[in-house]
């Protein structure tokens, strides 16, 4: 009887300790999470503040909430509304993402599944390009596109991606493909499918998680790309949101911070929405070692 009571006491003590440990862990996680997220929370809060209130304190809750920043920010100081710049961003992103998905899949399929002359050297070049800083290629690329007469158009932003110019994505898809068993593709070949049919009907569906990651990465990087549009686009009517944000800082003498912050919130919104909507595939795609055999 005494033993049982002792055991009961031990069990209760263990349960209490485990509860305390869990509570401490969660509190710590919440605090760190809050600190990390605070700038974003502040950004959203500050976009509803008046200009004078923004720098008055570090709190994020506006005293007199106003949508003024959104209304006036949307108008911009140019003849175009912010909607126009969103549309431009969309016009850049959509062909770029589609081009990337198609071209990188084709290139990765070739590298992962076929033997052809100079394959090793070519794949080595892809890896070398991966390690090359982007800035190094800016000037030759600029001169090339200038000579082709593509300046102030979306072509310099679309074309490199449509030709599997993003070595990182090719590499990522090659790695994913290498982890997939080849049996299904062989079965498709025995079923009479040619290489392209095998790619479309068998490989692409199995590649979907990685492909979704590629599209998401490309979407977010293009949405955030500042330098590319800055170099190649000179007409304001072609500016994407990344340039338009900077424009609103340049053209106003006294910065209307609430307008800038409001537009910043709108700018990051699509990337956040897309990321959370496709989060499952995104994580699956970058962490997956393929499917089980």
């Amino acid at each position: 009887m005494t033993d049982l009571t002792f055991n009961d006491r031990q069990a209760m003590r263990r349960a209490r300790l485990s509860l305390i440990s869990t509570a401490i862990r969660y509190i710590l996680l919440c605090v760190v999470g809050f600190v990390m997220l605070y700038p974003l929370i502040w950004l959203v809060g500050a976009s509803f503040k008046t200009n004078s209130e923004i720098f008055a304190g570090a709190g994020f809750l506006p005293e007199n909430p106003t949508a003024d920043g959104y209304i006036k920010g949307w108008q911009t100081s140019t003849p175009y509304t912010f909607g126009r710049f969103f549309w431009n961003s969309f016009l850049i992103i959509l062909p770029k993402v589609i081009g990337t998905a198609i071209s990188c899949t084709l290139a990765a399929y070739a590298f992962a599944r076929f033997d052809f002359p100079l394959k090793k050297i070519l794949f080595g070049s892809v890896i070398a390009i991966l390690l090359l800083p982007n800035v190094v290629t800016r000037i030759p690329q600029y001169i090339l596109f200038r000579d082709l007469g593509w300046l102030d158009s979306f072509l310099p932003l679309w074309v490199p991606s449509a030709l599997a110019g993003d070595a990182f994505f090719v590499f990522m898809l090659v790695q994913f493909l290498r982890s997939l068993p080849t049996d299904m593709e062989e079965a498709a070949r025995v079923d009479g499918a040619n290489s392209l049919q095998t790619l479309i009907y068998i490989v692409v569906p199995m590649l979907a998680p990685a492909l979704i990651s590629v599209c998401l990465f490309q979407f977010m990087w293009t949405m955030n790309d500042f330098l590319g549009p800055l170099i190649y686009l000179s007409s304001v009517d072609k500016y994407p949101v990344s340039l338009a944000l900077k424009l609103s800082i340049d053209t106003t003498e006294a910065f209307e911070w609430n307008r800038i912050l409001a537009m910043s919130v709108l700018t990051i919104a699509p990337a956040l929405i897309v990321f959370f909507a496709a989060q499952r595939y995104f994580i699956e795609g970058i962490s997956s070692g393929g499917i089980k055999g």
């Binding site: 062989e186 079965a187 025995v190 009479g192 068998i202 055999g293």
Partner: peptide, 20 residues
């Protein structure tokens, strides 16, 4: 001839069914 034109059918060790 490619496999599809050889008038053969094959059953694989791990079935190789199209997962999707």
């Amino acid at each position: 001839l490619p496999p599809g034109k050889r008038s053969i059918a094959m059953v694989f060790q791990n079935y190789a069914l199209y997962p999707h």
